[in-house]
Write a protein that binds this DNA or RNA. Structure first.
Length: 676
RNA sequence: GGUGAUGUAGCUCAGCUGGUUAGAGCGCAGGAUUCAUAAUCCUGAGGUCGAGAGUUCAAGUCUCUCCAUCACCA
């Protein structure tokens, strides 16, 4: 029995889980479940990554403390993972006592080993906010192509990279003020000292070949010492002995793997030694699943940190590519920036995504594409049309003619025609296990579906519906066909369990079993089957359309909110341009041929009588409006409409779901009064 | 800008260390079938393997150049 500790990268606690994140969690979860089905002892831990400036700023924006923000996000993340059947043994947080302990301990050990050095550096400082600015919070003109409003590290327009000090006219994106250069004392991890160790470690088979190539580039350019300090204000752990300096979030984030594991041992009171997993690489294996974007941290900083603070190194780092949707980068305006939650709201079935990802995942770092049309056809044709179709087309016969009973494996061995087919499904086990182990899930899926296709072919050839017409004569043959189908279907489902745990559970119930939890179960007899109930619904293309539409709309709303949040203020002069008046509704009428408009006649005091057409028919009866006062925009340019000239506008509130609701002023407001 | 990866049928992807007529699923066309959620099965059409050059008896597979896409740059 192998003993494995497996991790997925920690999601940052300032946003929702989206389909891009899920590639990794689903990939890891499949591999973890696979290892469990091979009877290995497996722990799968993760945590929210909770520290850093962006979290601090976001909490401020939302009027929360950072702790409140991360606890809110943690709940949301945990629910998303659970609903996508991502089964962590522990989903913890980096803002924990355990993590503080290990972070300090690692830091002290590194210091003792002479790997920590103090340097004075010069950084941009926002005098208004009284804080040092991370690169991405500084904006200015690109020094090369002069494009305005570029971030402090690189230009989105020409792709140049530079340091924020090179920007022309830099400004703080937090306060808008001009940052000044200021000196500060920082702790550095002497990565430059670790080159020999890292060259050896990265070439010892711990990385995929592509990742190894990528790493070479960094060696070529020379390893730079790593700044692990951030000045206050910051949300994170104080560096031991300091009052205003914190650990950079990337120091304590991977240590969060250790903290989450330690927390798991305590919480579940497991009789397992922490050191077996974190100090002794002989006894246990440690695997990190990550995205290719954070390879740098996991393949250089992390092993070096571990090695020089007395811990074991990871057994292997598995990096995967990025997710594109419909062949392009995920985009909020196209609606392809799909959150886990909105996928569930519209598609309902998390296993459709799990299946689709599995059918495309392999061991490489190449990006994978979620083609939504492709997902629909794949799910419908593979899962519904082929897999689930088997019990649907055979269980009726088994129940009707054989009282739900299936032949034992030994009995069918006498007939080589059928037994060979079953044998093929048994023999595939070794191959499938090897493919799973190597994370070649797309090939696993393809292999399994050759079995499914065999069964459908067998049923077509043998035509149980015809055999049943002359049941006395054909009973034996019919039973063989059905038995063979049942075994192969059962075995294929066992093989698919890591990918489709819920479906597997429901299929187990069809066979009067509790659960499929071990690949060895393919050798067990099937005793009986129950009545067939539909296992999966077809996926309709409209569901996908609605999913994209909803995400698109939400993005538009958010952009509106953002405009306000981004402090795109208007001046008081701008506001005074609008002549708002109290008006009395004297008449209100339906208009023939108008779907949403009412004709409203207003008494605006000194401005006289005005007519407007208001799109409020859905909410208001004309008679209920007469005699009420409302708010009127008096200097809006008159507009010719089908029904006449609209001489202004009355104000009403609405969002995408409800409204409009007309505004009514408080008592005492008289027609013609200015609103200011 | 530097570096890494990717580019194979309409779509999504397999093709191990170079070796006979380049594969799968979906889609499409034709047929079979009706047990099954219009599901299933059979047959077929579809590719100068991003472009160009080179190495070799032989290249999708190795080398070089170029083009496009994605990522990273601490």
């Amino acid at each position: 029995m192998r003993r494995l500790l497996i991790t997925s990268a920690l999601p940052y606690a300032n946003g929702s889980i989206h389909l891009g994140h899920l590639v990794e969690y689903i990939q890891t979860d499949i591999w973890t479940r696979f290892q469990r089905m091979c009877e290995n002892e497996v722990f799968y831990v993760c945590a929210d990554d909770t520290h850093g400036t962006p979290i601090m700023i976001k909490a401020q924006d939302e009027g929360l403390t950072p702790q409140e923000l991360i606890s809110k996000v943690h709940k949301e993340h945990a629910q998303d993972f659970k609903d996508f059947l991502v089964e962590f043994d522990n989903f913890y947080t980096t803002d924990s006592d355990e993590n503080r302990f290990f972070s300090e301990e690692v830091f002290k050990s590194l210091d003792k080993a002479g790997k920590i050095v103090i340097k004075e550096i010069e950084q941009f400082f926002d005098q208004e906010k009284q804080m040092f600015l991370p690169d991405r919070f500084i904006k200015g003109e690109c020094p090369r192509c002069k494009t305005k409003d570029q971030y402090g590290d690189s230009c989105e327009s020409c792709g140049a990279t530079y340091s924020p000090t090179e920007l022309i006219n830099p400004f703080s994106s937090l306060s808008g003020s001009k940052p000044v250069k200021k000196k500060t004392k920082h702790y550095f991890f002497k990565l430059s000292d670790c080159e020999e160790f890292l060259i050896h470690w990265t070439k010892s088979g711990t990385l995929q070949p592509e990742a190894e190539n990528k790493i070479q580039e960094w060696f070529k350019s020379g390893l730079q010492d790593w700044d692990i300090t951030r000045d206050k204000p910051y949300f994170g752990f104080l560096i031991p002995g300091e009052k205003e300096k914190y650990f950079y979030v990337w120091l304590d984030a991977p240590i969060g793997y250790m903290a989450s594991f330690q927390n798991l041992l305590q919480k579940k009171e497991l009789d397992i030694k922490f050191d077996d997993y974190w100090k002794d690489s002989e006894k246990t294996e440690l695997y990190h699943f990550i995205g290719k974007d954070i390879l740098y941290f996991h393949a250089l900083f992390w092993p070096a940190t571990l090695n020089f603070s007395g811990y074991r190194k990871p057994t292997k780092i598995f990096s995967h590519g990025f997710l594109t949707v419909n062949g392009e980068k995920m985009s909020k305006s196209r609606g392809t920036f799909i959150t886990a939650r909105s996928f569930l709201d519209h598609i309902k079935e998390p296993e459709y995504l799990r299946y689709y990802y599995a059918s495309k995942l392999n061991d490489s770092m190449a990006d994978i594409d979620l083609s939504l049309d492709d997902m629909v056809t794949k799910v419908n044709s593979d899962l519904v049309g082929k897999l689930v179709n088997i019990p649907s087309r055979t269980f009726g016969f088994i129940n009707k003619y054989f009282d739900g009973k299936i032949k034992p494996l030994n009995d069918i061995k006498t007939d080589p025609y059928y037994f060979e087919l079953i044998l093929k499904s048994l023999d595939l086990q070794d191959e499938i296990i090897e493919l799973y182990e190597n994370r070649l899930f797309s090939q696993v899926v393809r292999k399994i579906f050759t079995l499914i296709e065999d069964v459908n072919e067998l049923i077509n050839d043998q035509q149980p519906w015809n055999l049943a017409k002359n049941i006395e004569q054909n009973k034996e043959q019919l039973h063989n066909v059905l038995t063979t189908s049942a075994y192969i279907f059962r075995n294929a489902t066992i093989y698919l369990t890591p990918i489709l745990p819920n479906l597997s559970l429901n299929v187990a119930k069809l066979f009067n079993e509790n659960i499929f939890h071990n690949f060895k179960q393919i050798h067990e007899d099937i005793k009986s089957v129950t009545r067939y109930k539909h296992l999966l619904q077809r996926l309709e293309a409209e569901q996908v359309d609605r999913l994209l539409d909803t995400n698109k709309k939400q993005d538009l709303l958010k952009q509106d909110d953002k405009k306000i949040n981004m402090k795109e203020y208007i001046s008081i002069e701008d506001l005074q341009k609008i002549d708002l008046r109290v008006a009395l509704i004297t008449k209100a009428n339906f208009l023939e041929g108008a779907d949403s408009l009412l004709k409203i006649t207003l008494d605006v005091g000194s401005l006289g009588t005005k007519n407007v057409f208001a799109g409020i028919k859905s909410q208001y009866e004309p008679n209920n409006l007469i005699g009420k006062k409302t708010v009127f925009v008096a200097n809006l340019a008159p507009r010719k409409m089908k029904f006449g000239v609209s001489e202004g506008m009355i104000l009403a509130a609405s969002d995408d779901k409800k409204g409009p609701f007309v505004l009514f002023p408080d008592e005492g407001a008289e027609p013609g009064m200015k609103i200011k």
